[in-house]
Design a binder for these strands. Sequence first.
DNA 1: AAGGTCGACAACCGCAACGAA
DNA 2: ATTCGTTGCGGTTGTCGACCT
Length: 274
Amino acid sequence: MGRAPCCDKSKVKRGPWSPEEDTTLKNYIERYGTGGNWIALPHKAGLKRCGKSCRLRWLNYLRPDIRHGGFTEEEDNIILTLYSSIGSRWSIIATHLQGRTDNDVKNYWNTKLKKKLLAGKTNSSSSSSNCNITPNNSMHFSSAPSWAFGSKVETHYYANLAGSNTNSNSLPCYQMNLNYQQHFVPQTLVLDPVQLPLPRLMEVDPEKGTSNSSFSVASSQEVSSISTLFSSWSGNGSGREDHDGFLMDSGSGFPYDILNGFDFQENTGEVYPN
DNA sequence: AAGGTCGACAACCGCAACGAA
DNA sequence: ATTCGTTGCGGTTGTCGACCT
């Protein structure tokens, strides 16, 4: 028994929207609003379309604040930075780009940026990134992945080291993360003191010790894999399995409500549990 | 000129989350 | 606590035009 369809597909028009349909939908919404019910809207507006289709058409194309046309280099950098930190959360990424929709960003990523990224990646596999353990026991690693951002954007990640792994300074960052994640509930922060709201990631261990050392990871590609791990761990607040099948629970929503319980240092970009 | 290929973008699909009943 | 309707989201597909052979 399958899921009930949202509308009778035999009675609704599908495919590209005509200018007349656009005008009808636009006029209706400008006059009456959506009424908080997209399902009922097409009938009221006199459109033979599914409510979901109307919603999508309005949000992605007809809204007056939509910006069409090419993406700027600055927008490229924002998308790349956010993607490296939070993954394919297009709706969140789109909120950082004035007038862009999640669909726009997604399409742009799939058709252009991804290729740009992959092309650049093969040319800079030897670039290195630094990773430091700060006195307050937050692990901080920064990278300037030229294959993604040129030299303009630097991405910072923070993570606390847990238990015995604080002694494993010779290990690459990502291995340390994989080690401690099994008894460690990660928290993720999305904030940047300089270019709000660009992201920074942080993990906090409530039972932290103290450490002060530094080491490096081999390549920006590895840093990228770390950020991918982070984004997969942080998720949406519900339990989920990590790459080793270990059940993780971030215990918080994403991305903003997790700020509760932290002090954010605007001048340094660092975050501490309060 | 015709057919094939590719890229860009619009639109659809299905799932999960959410809120109201 | 459960069910149901609706919305939001991300992945995928479809369509169309540009370019190539």
